[in-house]
Simulated scan of single mutants.
Amino acid sequence: MQNFVFHNSTKIIFGKDQEQVVGQESVAYGKKLLLHYGGGSIKSSGLYDRVVSSLKEQGVEIFELGGVKPNPRVSLVRDGVALCKENDIDFILAVGGGSVIDSAKAIAAGCKYDGDVWDFYTGKAAVTDSLPLGVVLTIPAAGSESSAGTVITNEEGSYKRATGHISLRPRFAILNPVLSYTLPSYQTACGVTDMISHILERYFTNEKNVELTDRLSEATLRTIINNAHTVLEDPTNYDARAEIMWAGTIAHNDLLDTGRIGDWGSHDVEHEISGIYDIAHGAGLAIVFPAWMKYVYKHDINRFVQFANRVWDVEIDLNNLEKTALEGIKRTEQFFSSIGMPIRLEEVNINEEHFDEMAKKGTERGPLGNFVKLQEKDVRQIFNLAK
């Protein structure tokens, strides 16, 4: 087990009607607030009115910036940075899912920097401080509500890149499972896939003695899998929604990282796809992850056997470990398909046109992943397995 320091400062406020306390939580950080959100769904659902009412009860002055898109754009982030600097904003409140939260984090970092915020995502500069921010979560998926990371897309060149810093962890996150009742089935399934992928990125490690976090990861995976079909078939099942929402947070709050070094190659590969084609991140991961598994499983076949057995209840064939490992990969792929996710690039109308470009861009700053280091030729082969 690796040495580690675990410190997650995000206050989780979980349960029904908890968005009603957003005003008293936010005012602790100042009186001038940027309310950041996506489209019109928070208004049509009534959530916007409840949030604004709670903020105004505390005497908070509200500035607004909506329009966040899936795969959030750096152009809107730049607008947000300018708005915050011009109005001396104290605090940012993100109301939405991972895209809104990631955009808010980028704005928060940019407010403490004199250069262009995109510098953080190219490695030209490092985040050292940010404005405080809070979250009202509406889409369980990305886990960004208590993580230290953010992913942004630059329309110029279709680059999708990540950065992070401990100051980007939200000060609080309000998680009301009821707010996810009206999510379209496809968006729910994308969220399920995203959180599963966050766990798998950590699970496939070269660190050998990490039994506790292995079993925590396996339990979280099984919880998500066990509740996924329920929320798709019965969207207002509170208990299942609650399990999914909390699991999504646990999947990416760094608890499952402790003592181990995760991979993250599949996320980087998927970023190249959604950077160009703008597909949902979860859908891209459902395509990429099984392809990555097929490409790397021989690197540590025992870990893939353990995954197949503990997560999918595949009986271990001691005479043919490869058969067991491959069955686990097959069941992963079948599960994604069963919840309506694509598992091949052709299902989302992506052909080989940009394979070489994506492989080159993805590795231009060095190989991807840690479980197996992926060079340009390896990424190209993963695209081939995914087509």
Rank of each mutant, 00 (worst) to 15 (best):
I276Q: 08
L65G: 07
I329W: 10
S44Q: 12
N206F: 08
G191M: 12
N384L: 12
V311Y: 08
V52Y: 11
S130G: 11
R331D: 03
N309C: 12
A125K: 06
G115W: 11
L232D: 11
L175K: 02
G66K: 10
H281M: 13
Y277S: 10
D79T: 06
Y203V: 02
L232N: 04
N226D: 15
V348S: 01
A291R: 04
E315C: 06
Q18M: 15
Y297M: 07
A325L: 11
G369R: 08
T122A: 07
I13G: 06
Y37H: 15
N154P: 01
A125L: 08
N320F: 09
A251V: 01
A108C: 15
E64K: 15
I343L: 01
C111I: 04
F63C: 00
V210P: 00
Q381V: 06
E364F: 07
W264M: 13
A148G: 00
A386P: 04
E272A: 05
Q2H: 03
H271Q: 14
S146Y: 12
D119H: 14
F304N: 03
E155M: 11
Y181S: 05
E315W: 08
L137D: 10
M1N: 05
F355V: 06
L318Q: 12
L35W: 08
F6S: 00
I382G: 09
K208A: 07
T153F: 08
G259T: 04
L285W: 01
N8T: 06
H229L: 08
Y277L: 03
N176C: 14
A228E: 03
R260C: 01
L385I: 08
L318E: 15
Q334F: 01
D119S: 15
V314T: 14
Y277G: 05
V372L: 13
Q375N: 13
N384P: 00
H36K: 06
Q375E: 15
N302P: 00
G134D: 12
S41Y: 13
I199Q: 01
V117L: 09
L35A: 03
V311K: 01
L255T: 13
F371P: 01
E322P: 03
F14S: 05
N176A: 11
G164R: 10
N237W: 09
Q187F: 06
G30S: 12
D300G: 03
F63E: 00
L33W: 09
I301Y: 02
A148R: 13
V95G: 09
L93T: 06
S44C: 04
A359Q: 01
C111A: 02
L385M: 11
E243T: 00
K298H: 11
P342C: 05
T332E: 12
F307L: 04
K56Y: 00
G284Q: 03
A251S: 15
I199A: 02
A148P: 00
